[in-house]
Simulated scan of single mutants.
Amino acid sequence: MRGDDSTDEQAVFEALADPDCREILATVAEPLPAKAVAQQCDLPQTSTYRKLEQLSEAGLVAEQTDVRPDGHHRTTYVRDCNGVFVALDGDDAFDVEVVSARQSPDERLARLWARVSEEL
């Protein structure tokens, strides 16, 4: 992503700048319904839903459906990233790359080395 080409980077930056969003990211290491997230983060439920939506739009949290045998399915939220790379260049532009939680350690290491070799 290029900082001057898309609003996705802005969404990532705004989500990470919000202390409540960062707390939510730490809380949803395992799938949780919004009500549990609100309780654990000591946030109003309406704020929690708004911040979960913000994190989801930024690609940092995934929304899942917990299918239950009684037919009362529920939506859960889980962190969908392991990190964020931000690279600045000399032209006041930047690249933002969200590291997916679905990547293996080998894939993350390969990405890191690719970025390092770009700098050399």
Score class of each variant (00 low, 15 high):
residue 117 S to Y: 04
residue 46 T to F: 14
residue 77 Y to L: 03
residue 6 S to I: 08
residue 80 D to G: 14
residue 5 D to R: 15
residue 42 D to N: 03
residue 93 A to L: 03
residue 4 D to P: 12
residue 65 T to Y: 06
residue 63 E to N: 11
residue 66 D to F: 09
residue 85 F to D: 06
residue 73 H to A: 03
residue 110 A to Y: 07
residue 98 V to W: 00
residue 43 L to H: 00
residue 3 G to F: 02
residue 110 A to Q: 08
residue 118 E to L: 06
residue 104 S to C: 02
residue 4 D to I: 15
residue 91 D to V: 15
residue 87 A to F: 08
residue 120 L to I: 14
residue 53 E to R: 03
residue 82 N to D: 11
residue 93 A to E: 04
residue 10 Q to W: 12
residue 9 E to S: 15
residue 86 V to S: 07
residue 21 C to I: 11
residue 13 F to T: 10
residue 88 L to K: 13
residue 95 D to K: 04
residue 53 E to I: 01
residue 33 P to G: 09
residue 36 A to M: 10
residue 111 R to N: 06
residue 71 G to K: 12
residue 111 R to F: 10
residue 27 T to F: 00
residue 97 E to I: 07
residue 42 D to R: 00
residue 71 G to A: 06
residue 62 A to R: 13
residue 53 E to T: 07
residue 35 K to Y: 02
residue 2 R to S: 12
residue 102 R to S: 15
residue 102 R to D: 15
residue 83 G to I: 09
residue 108 R to Q: 05
residue 58 A to N: 09
residue 97 E to A: 15
residue 28 V to K: 04
residue 20 D to Y: 00
residue 111 R to A: 09
residue 111 R to S: 11
residue 109 L to P: 03
residue 104 S to T: 11
residue 118 E to K: 02
residue 45 Q to S: 12
residue 15 A to S: 09
residue 32 L to N: 01
residue 4 D to F: 12
residue 9 E to A: 15
residue 51 K to I: 09
residue 6 S to Q: 01
residue 91 D to Q: 15
residue 118 E to G: 05
residue 55 L to D: 02
residue 37 V to H: 00
residue 99 V to S: 03
residue 43 L to R: 01
residue 105 P to N: 08
residue 54 Q to M: 06
residue 39 Q to E: 12
residue 53 E to P: 00
residue 63 E to W: 05
residue 25 L to C: 08
residue 60 L to T: 06
residue 78 V to N: 00
residue 88 L to F: 14
residue 117 S to M: 04
residue 44 P to Q: 01
residue 76 T to D: 10
residue 100 S to Q: 02
residue 47 S to V: 07
residue 99 V to H: 04
residue 19 P to W: 01
residue 96 V to N: 05
residue 59 G to F: 12
residue 34 A to C: 07
residue 81 C to A: 13
residue 84 V to S: 02
residue 99 V to K: 02
residue 67 V to A: 14
residue 7 T to C: 10
residue 61 V to G: 12
residue 50 R to L: 01
residue 17 A to L: 06
residue 11 A to I: 08
residue 14 E to Q: 15
